[in-house]
Design a protein around this nucleic acid. Structure first.
Length: 879
RNA sequence: GGGCAAUUAGCUCAGUUGGUUAGAGCGUUACAUUGACAUUGUAAAGGUCAGAGGUUCGAAUCCUCUAUUGCCCACCA
């Protein structure tokens, strides 16, 4: 007989257990094969960890990723799949650089420029390394069974090679180009930002109605008067009668700045006649939309000019003349409005709400500016090579089409599927992807210049005199390669060995990076490998606070997973993230919830403790034992059901449901009912041993630490639960019989209760009836087994005599209340039967519905009829 | 402006293709507790399933509209 400590203390076990797991090497699929836990030819199952940024520490979002993925990985490992979970971290270029810059300024009062590129990068590297170590240790705290031998970094040399290789390939295919475009410029960050990195903020603004000059015929409206110094056209809707006559005309207007403006009147469909004055001042240099108009005109052979009036420093440029140059945007705005006012050109000022684009990383207002940048062309056709996407070799495709194709053709399944719509919608609106950033920390663009020559290559050109493009790549460029760059690509040998894990089985991530990351992986992988990056995308919701708010420092509502682990243990923290959620929906989390799961962890511990007290000699491998009593049959049936359900739901990604069913079984059926019966019946060593093993295995993917702790306490520290075979018991009893057993248990419990009352004995405590058992007569008549079973509780000698004479089940049924209930039920069933008969007599239904459905309906009808008879009989008995 | 969701007990949420009496956890209340577990047990109270209409023998579930909330995309000059 083994005895466990009275309560489970996570701290006494967790770190130790993790260390042992790690030392065993079993997180590595190759080791699992070598040690014989996995068949060499087993199916593979692979996940890559969405690499956490090296800027921060573990937050609940990470914890949720780790818990969910570890759940899948541990399940598949136990099932015998060759299971790889690949860890890594992200260099998060902009975020990391910004953070280090901030620290540098605060601690040393220095800027990156005063340090110089090289020294600054060294500082970042050091920061990244420290931060990396912290976050890796935190992952380990969560119990994540990641294969650390394969750890990768988005900015290490292997990944850098992959990035350069892909860049070169895309460049050669003409999919990457350098272009002069209006980009999102962050003055504060001194860098571009992609469209996805913008956050729109509503601000009160003013809409100014004005004319450029007295003799200009059209009034225009703007919220940004200062940019009007760079206007080169006025656009109107071609259908607008009011302005039609002006289209094509050219005006030269003096606006009090250095140069008079040359304004052409152009037509563009995108101009709404109803908004403002129906005419739009076109500023090609400082508005993405206007720039598009400019390009459209250019293609049509109508050059309208482009004047940059705001510089990268956020100040007015020299072209604006001595009155304006050097002024900030706001100063210039005031000055220009002043000018308009003085010259009676300002017709109206209107208060509006402006939606201003700000930089996600730096927080400042984005200044659209024209700049030469690198872009990925998503609409350019190229010839596709051999591929596994079901597209004919040699046909012409675009990156956009590839991205649409794989999801449309179900090469990739997105869970929940409503996100497919979002995905398509996003792709429809996708514009060329600006991939160059003016940051220092990142993959430098593998392009070199010499005089007017341009060279793109995986390696630098050998001759002297070439200068590399100083820009670096958007982090998502390297993240997009993550599923295969971590598996050795483009190193041929490595890739040949590791590509058995590609495509990744499941990409599990929160829905907020569907576009940033998931879409880009699809883009990159289909293009580079002609293969999908993953078969399934499982999108989790975000973790929010109790009131559904985002967790943030300013709200002070952050729950630190490490605090929770300290207080309640890792298993409880994991459960709180896994249970009570549905995919794609945000989860609300509170400390109370975690505390609740701590209670459950301890409950499982004590269930095991009790079982062990009643197991003679625990064995790791136990065949399914014989049931000696009906209670045994019932619990053995129940555990089979729950094992089957768990397996099915884990396969269907119903992680929450599976866990809840397991919990209900463990706490409800097993602890509250069966173990209580076991106290009375006794002699259950084998069955308890069998059940203990199964529930520990079933729970292991959810609660790896407590289950492993119990396992090792019982079977020795050299054993590990982690690679035990996951239960796949076959179900030997047909479900219709379960009612009988349920009835049995209820009967036993009810009877014990009343016997206790009647004979004033003290049988097992903590027993009670909670389910309606039907009438006393029915119970006695239909369930002779129950009486026999009661007799089998022979530890209570007097039960036999009591049972034989009369079981007082009063209280279970009140015939006064029972009668109306039965009548109501009969009425409803009659209706139900009527409906079914109706349906089945409907020829259209019988002919058109699938056979199984018709059969199912017939079965339902028979069942309902039987039930109806039974109920009518019951009612008759009552009368 | 376009799209996607949500609305079920005091709170947080389930509810698997429409089916008999809508569930769980937490909270509340009452009772119990000596040997697995107070990190416990048994029970009770608490729900016109947001509202209105429709389809159906039958609707929390399907359809339409309305209201409220949240999110995503686009951006209006």
């Amino acid at each position: 007989m083994k005895e466990l400590p009275k309560a489970y203390e996570p701290k006494n076990y967790e770190d130790n257990i993790y260390k042992k797991w790690e030392e065993s090497g079993l997180f590595n699929p190759d080791v699992c094969v070598k040690k014989g836990f996995t068949e060499p030819k087993a199916n593979y199952f692979s996940i890559v960890l969405p690499p956490p940024n090296v800027t921060g520490t573990l937050h609940l979002g990470h914890a949720a990723r780790l818990a969910t993925e570890d759940l899948m990985v541990r399940y598949h490992r136990m099932k015998g799949d060759k299971t790889l979970w690949l860890p890594g971290t992200d260099h998060a270029a902009v975020a990391t650089q910004a953070k280090v810059e901030k620290i540098l300024m605060e601690k040393e009062g220095k800027t990156k420029y005063s340090l110089g590129r090289e020294e600054f990068l060294r500082r970042i590297e050091k920061f990244a390394q420290d931060s990396h170590d912290t976050i890796i240790n935190q992952c380990k705290k969560m119990g994540a069974s990641l294969d650390w031998s394969r750890e990768a970094y988005t900015f290490d040399s292997e990944r850098n090679l992959a990035v350069r290789t892909v860049f070169k390939q895309m460049y050669d295919d003409g999919l990457i180009y350098r272009g002069y475009r209006v980009v999102n410029w962050s003055v504060k960050g001194q860098s571009t930002a992609s469209d996805d990195e913008l956050v729109y903020v509503e601000r009160p603004g003013k809409l100014y109605y004005f004319k450029y000059s007295k003799d200009f015929p059209i009034t225009i409206a703007t919220t940004r008067p200062e940019t009007k110094l760079g206007d080169t056209a006025v656009a109107v809707n071609p259908k607008d009668k009011k302005y039609k006559k002006y289209i094509g005309q050219e005006f030269t207007v003096d606006v009090g700045a250095a140069q008079p403006l040359k304004i052409k009147i152009i037509a563009d469909e995108n101009v709404e006649s109803g908004f403002g004055t129906g005419a739009l001042g076109v500023t090609p240099a400082h508005s993405a939309i206007d720039f598009e108009m400019y390009q459209k005109q250019k293609v049509a052979g109508n050059e309208i000019g482009l004047v940059q009036v705001i510089g990268e420093d956020g100040k007015m440029t020299a072209v604006t003349g001595k009155d304006y140059v050097g002024l900030t945007v706001l100063e210039a705005r005031e000055k220009f409005v002043d000018y308009l006012r003085k010259n009676n050109l300002l017709e109206k000022e209107e208060d509006t709400v402006q939606n201003v684009a700000t930089s996600d990383r730096f927080g400042d207002v984005i200044e659209p500016l024209p700049k030469t940048q690198w872009f990925v062309d998503v609409n350019k056709e190229f010839v596709i090579k051999e591929n596994k996407l079901g597209i004919k070799k040699g046909s012409k495709v675009t990156l956009k089409k590839l991205m649409q194709h794989v999801v449309k053709e179900k090469g990739i399944q997105i869970i929940p599927d409503r996100f497919e719509k979002t995905y398509f919608h996003w792709i429809d609106n996708l514009r060329d992807w600006c991939i160059s950033r003016q940051i220092w920390y990142g993959h430098q663009i593998p392009v070199w210049y010499k005089n007017d020559e341009v060279y793109c290559g995986v390696e630098a050109p050998k001759e002297d005199g070439w200068v590399q493009d100083p820009d670096t790549l958007d982090t998502w460029f390297s993240s997009g390669l993550w599923t295969f760059s971590t598996l050795g690509w483009p190193n041929k040998e490595e890739w040949a060995k590791e590509n058995i894990f590609h495509p990744i089985s499941v990409m599990e991530t929160a829905y907020d990076i569907l576009f940033f990351w998931v879409a880009r992986m699809i883009l990159m992988t289909t293009y580079v490998l002609g293969e999908v990056p993953f078969k399934t995308v499982y999108l989790s919701g975000l973790v929010r606070d109790e009131q559904g708010r985002k967790m943030s420092k300013s709200l002070g509502n952050i729950i630190d997973p490490l605090d929770m682990i300290n207080k309640y243990g890792t298993d409880a923290t994991r459960l709180s993230l896994l249970l009570g959620n549905t995919p794609g929906n945000d989860a609300k989390l509170s400390e109370e919830k975690i505390a609740g799961f701590r209670n459950f962890t301890n409950k499982l511990w004590n269930i095991s403790r009790f079982m062990l007290l009643n197991i003679d000699e625990p064995k790791m491998d136990v065949e399914k034992p014989e049931a000696k009593t009906l209670a045994d049959e019932w619990i053995l049936y129940k555990i089979e059901i729950v094992a089957a359900q768990t397996e099915a739901n884990l396969c269907k990604f119903n992680f929450s449901l599976a866990g809840e069913q397991l919990r209900d079984f463990t706490w409800g059926d097993l602890a509250d009912w069966y173990l209580e019966i076991a106290k009375v019946e006794g002699g259950k060593s084998e069955i308890l041993n069998y059940i203990l093993n199964i529930i520990l295995k079933l729970w292991h993917p959810y609660m790896p630490f407590v289950t492993e702790a119990i396992w090792q306490e019982v079977y020795g520290e050299d054993k590990t639960l982690m690679v035990q075979e996951f239960p796949n018991e076959s179900i030997g009893i047909v479900p219709s019989e379960v009612g009988l057993f349920e009835g049995f248990v209820i009967g036993v419990i009810t009877s014990i209760r009343s016997l206790r009352a009647e004979y004033k004995i003290e049988p097992a405590k903590k027993i009670g009836a909670k389910v309606n058992v039907g009438s006393k007569e029915e119970l006695l008549k239909n369930n002779a087994e129950i009486i026999k079973a009661l007799a089998r509780l022979d530890k209570l000698e007097f039960v036999q005599s009591g049972a034989e004479i009369s079981l007082d089940l009063a209280g279970a049924v009140d015939s006064e209340k029972e009668k109306p209930r039965l009548e109501k039920e009969i009425q409803e069933i009659k209706k139900y039967v009527g409906g079914l008969e109706n349906k089945l007599s409907n020829k259209e239904f019988v002919q058109n519905a699938p056979k199984e459905v018709v059969e199912k309906e017939k079965t339902k009808l028979n069942e309902a009829k039987a039930k109806l008879e039974k109920l009518e009989e019951q009612l008759a008995n009552l009368k």
